[in-house]
């Protein structure tokens, strides 16, 4: 059996207490939410914190509040979001993203906060200690070389969170709390395009809340590519959000997932869409913008050249769905099920 390394466990009841524990030794303390990312990583010795601060006991983190928009506690499980009628009704893209994360069992455990902070992934890195020893490790952990691109001076591990692209497309912000204070940042600013330092979160900060602005007039959608209908992380994904005035787009955001070390916004696409009706030609140009920007590397399932090509098709499907085309058959084929998760 794979076993955990030894660690010290702390169970704070409040965010303040958690922040205090974290402040003690932020370098080798990690937060534990659902554990579906951290526990496997610890078993594989990719992350070996000496102290683990469990967030489970902090009830305030698992609240969802209807304010101006929706304020979701970092500890809310993915299953609760999928079963949350408000998410389904107002933030369909987020619902589609969350409903396709991992598996139903993992969604019962995994939290939205953990998903946002999910470690970047790479097939040279998500391996046991012994396996990594056999390649003499890599830059992200215990080694020097990036085997994905041996001349690269930075790690190119892949941002694999499904929720983040959807949240960014929806204009989400997050609250970060530390022993020294609280700050609110746009979610997009939480990320950096660097496989090792993929979060701008300071190691003494706790992500407490994700806030979604009011959804008035916005339509959103999420298209995910993965080998199987379940379990698999995205290998390419797109979240698209647009505010319409009649059939004309007023404002739009396109965010790609799993093709860089961070969720990748496509500003050119947003600019191109603003003020336009969604014609087939426009969709094709936007798909091109996204295709050009996407930089998948050879460190996930599937071949990178093909993954890059699929970005066009994903963006096309997403925009067509926003336009109102009936995309159910295409979605069922891609997702391998009709996304029935709500019950």
């Amino acid at each position: 059996m794979m076993r955990l390394p030894s660690y010290r466990y702390r169970a704070p009841k409040t965010v303040q207490d958690a922040a205090a524990w974290l402040a003690e030794s932020p370098g080798d303390t990690m937060l534990l939410a659902g554990g579906t990312d951290l526990i496997p990583n610890m078993k594989r010795r990719q992350q070996v914190p000496s102290t683990v601060v469990g967030l489970r006991g902090i009830t305030e983190l698992s609240r969802t509040d209807d304010r101006d928009g929706l304020e979701i506690g970092a500890g809310v499980t993915l299953t609760s979001l999928v079963h949350d009628e408000r998410v389904h009704a107002r933030y369909l893209g987020l619902w589609q993203a969350v409903g396709q994360i991992a598996t139903p069992l993992l969604r019962n455990m995994g939290t939205i906060g953990g998903n946002i902070c999910l470690d970047t992934r790479c097939t040279y890195y998500d391996q046991s200690f012994e396996w990594r020893q056999a390649i003499n490790f890599c830059m992200k952990k215990d080694g020097d070389t990036c085997w994905v691109a041996t001349s690269s001076d930075k790690c190119l591990a892949v941002s694999s969170t499904d929720a983040a692209p959807a949240l960014i497309a929806l204009g989400a912000t997050v609250r970060l709390v530390s022993a020294t204070g609280t700050r609110e940042v746009a979610l997009t600013d939480l990320y950096a395009n660097d496989g090792m330092h993929y979060l701008t979160r300071r190691s003494d900060e706790i992500l407490t809340t994700v806030t979604l602005p009011k959804a008035d007039g916005w339509r959103t959608t999420y298209w995910k590519l993965r080998r199987r209908g379940s379990f698999d992380f995205p290998v390419a994904a797109v979240a698209a959000a647009a505010r319409f005035d009649g059939d004309r787009i007023v404002e739009a955001r396109i965010v790609l997932g799993a093709v860089a070390s961070r969720p990748l916004e496509v500003p050119a696409a947003a600019a191109r869409l603003a003020g336009q009706p969604l014609t087939d030609d426009l969709i094709a140009s936007v798909a091109d913008d996204a295709y050009t920007l996407a930089k998948p590397m050879d460190n996930t399932d599937f071949e990178l050249v093909w993954r890059k090509k699929t970005v066009r098709s994903l963006v096309t499907s997403a925009l067509r769905e926003l336009r109102g085309d009936d995309m159910r058959a295409a979605r069922t084929k891609l997702a391998r099920h009709p996304l029935l998760v709500i019950s």
Partner: peptide
Amino acid sequence: SILEYKSPTFLD
């Protein structure tokens, strides 16, 4: 790994 060695799920 059983994640990356792809074995069809119920949905596949």
